[in-house]
Structures are given as structure tokens and as C-alpha cells.
């Protein structure tokens, strides 16, 4: 049986790609952010995951408004980082884990989550930046699970939580590879808004309340509608849905391994969190 070793939640701000490329890790602007990953690296060395299942949102890379699935599961042999148009450096493709992908897709549909399957999938900074932050010199095979936060209506927080739980159950029932160790990644957030007169919106108190809830009261955020979340966290702060799903995959009680929060990175309240199951 496969086992989920824990969940890593991480901001994916595009500017991180440039900072990594320039080796700005110790630059005063970036240091408080990058320092947060040292404890994550130590934890990863300890738990040694074989594969990462990533909840992420697409930013106009693999999907356009012509076809916009609410939930999609990557079932590709590899995931290529496409040209995002604004000049961030592209990274080498990440290998997939198609067997786990198909198991996940089939089990989720069996569990009444009608996901779109993608045998070809380009990825953007929402996959590549967390991967580079977590594994600066390499990585593990990945299974991306895409959640629509491009156009309303988004799946509700309640639904994302349920998707996370179903994903956790599906992974636990995977037995094609003995003792496969899986790490969950929730990519995005925390509060930020890029567009409109409200650009630059950040809500520290909401972010902190949300992160607090993930440990002991994980369903707390499921009370909010999509519009509530835009109001509280900014248009793109809704990416906390990825954190919520990644937390929900750890069915049962959890312990906080590490947590770092820094404002601002680019226009964003940057957060890095690791939770592991206590069972």
C-alpha cells in the first residue's frame, strides 16, 4: 500500500523562478523567504518521498477558456514547462507516474469526482516553482491535479476539501508499487491580488487564521464561498484551495513540522507549511 508522508504547502510566485536563476537566496529581499525551505529540505531528507501529487491551478498554460475543467488529473509520462510568455526561465521536464495517475483518476471517478484526464499536460510556475524550491537539484516524479481558479464558478472550498480526502483515500489504496511513499503538495497563495484598483491586497490576519485552522480545525475554511474567499484573500489568494485539498488528503490528525510566512514576495503574502500525519 502507498503511504502519504505529509503535505507541503508553498507559494509559487513567478518571480521565484528568476530569483532561483540568479541565486538570490541570500539577498536581503529574498532571504526571509528562502530560509523557510531549510526545514522543509531537512524533512524531505527524512521522509524520502518517491512521488509528489500536486494540487495546483493553471495560469493560461495548459488550459484556455475554450475548455476549462473544474478538476483535471495529469496522466502524462512527463510534464514540460511551457513558455509562459513573460520571460521566466523554463526548467527541464518532470517525469510523471502514469500508473499512479490512472489509479487516481479511476478511483476519483469511482468516488463521484468526475475529473478530466490529460495524457499531455504543459505545466507552469505553479508546478515548477514549488518543485525547484523543494528539490533544487532534481526532484521526484509528479502527478499534477489541476483545480480551476481561472473562471467562476470555482469549485467550492467544501468540494476541494472533499477532493483532497478522496485523493488521500485513492493514494492509500494504491498497491501496484509496494510501500510507495507519496508527498502531497498544495501550490499557491497566500493572500494576493494582481488586478484592478484592489491590486496589492493582502490580508495577514485571514492568512494566519486559515493556516492555524489547517492543523486542528481543517474544515474551517469550507464555510466560505468563492466570492467570500476573493473578498478575504484577494482574487488570487483563492489558491488557498490547493492548501485545503492537500491538507484534506492527510485524513485524520496532523502535526505542524514547519511554517514560514513573509510579506511581501512580489505582490504576495508568501507561505510555506509542512504538515505530517500523527497516526
Amino acid at each position: 500500500m502507498a503511504r502519504i508522508v505529509g503535505s507541503i504547502m508553498s507559494t509559487h510566485v513567478p518571480a521565484i523562478a528568476n530569483a532561483l536563476d540568479r541565486h538570490d537566496e541570500t539577498d536581503p529581499y529574498w532571504k526571509p523567504f528562502f530560509d523557510g525551505y531549510e526545514a522543509v529540505h531537512a524533512w524531505l531528507r527524512e521522509v524520502q518521498p518517491d512521488v509528489a501529487v500536486i494540487f495546483h491551478n493553471d495560469h493560461g498554460m495548459n488550459f484556455f477558456l475554450d475548455k476549462m475543467p473544474t478538476f483535471a488529473v495529469g496522466c502524462a509520462p512527463e510534464y514540460r514547462h511551457g513558455d509562459e510568455g513573460w520571460g521566466i526561465p523554463t526548467v527541464d521536464p518532470y517525469p510523471g507516474h502514469p500508473d499512479l495517475s490512472w489509479h487516481l483518476a479511476e478511483t476519483l471517478v469511482g468516488d463521484e469526482f468526475d475529473v478530466t484526464t490529460c495524457q499531455e499536460m504543459l505545466v507552469d510556475h505553479a508546478v515548477t516553482n514549488p518543485m525547484k524550491l523543494l528539490w533544487p537539484d532534481g526532484g521526484v516524479p509528479i502527478v499534477p491535479v489541476t483545480v480551476n481558479t481561472v473562471m467562476f464558478p470555482y469549485p467550492s472550498a467544501k468540494r476541494c476539501f472533499a477532493l483532497g480526502e478522496a485523493t488521500g483515500r485513492a493514494i492509500s489504496s494504491y498497491d501496484a508499487v509496494p510501500d510507495l511513499r507519496v508527498v502531497m503538495i498544495g501550490s499557491g497563495g497566500l493572500s494576493h491580488q494582481l488586478e484592478g484598483e484592489r491590486a496589492g491586497f493582502i490580508n495577514k490576519s485571514f492568512d494566519l487564521r486559515f493556516v492555524e485552522s489547517l492543523t486542528d480545525d481543517p474544515r474551517w475554511a469550507t464555510q466560505f464561498s468563492g466570492e467570500d474567499l476573493v473578498k478575504e484573500t484577494g482574487s488570487q489568494g483563492v489558491e488557498l484551495l490547493m492548501w485545503l485539498a492537500a491538507r484534506a488528503a492527510l485524513i485524520g490528525t496532523v502535526r505542524r513540522v514547519t511554517w514560514n510566512y513573509h510579506i511581501p514576495i512580489s505582490n504576495t503574502a508568501a507561505g510555506t507549511l509542512v504538515l505530517e500525519p500523527t497516526a
Binding site: 518571480a15 493560461g60 509562459e84 510568455g85 473562471m151 494582481l194 491590486a199 482574487s235 512580489s266 505582490n267
Partner: peptide, 19 residues
């Protein structure tokens, strides 16, 4: 949409703070 407009802005090397 902000995600697509960002690609337009990128042509002129405008970052998110410029925007």
C-alpha cells in the same frame, strides 16, 4: 482576464509591481 493579460504585459517587460 488577469492571467492572460499578464502575458500581454510581459511583452513590454512590465512586472506585477509595474502593473
Amino acid at each position: 482576464h488577469p492571467y492572460y493579460l499578464a502575458k500581454f504585459a510581459g511583452i513590454f517587460h512590465l512586472d506585477v509591481q509595474d502593473l
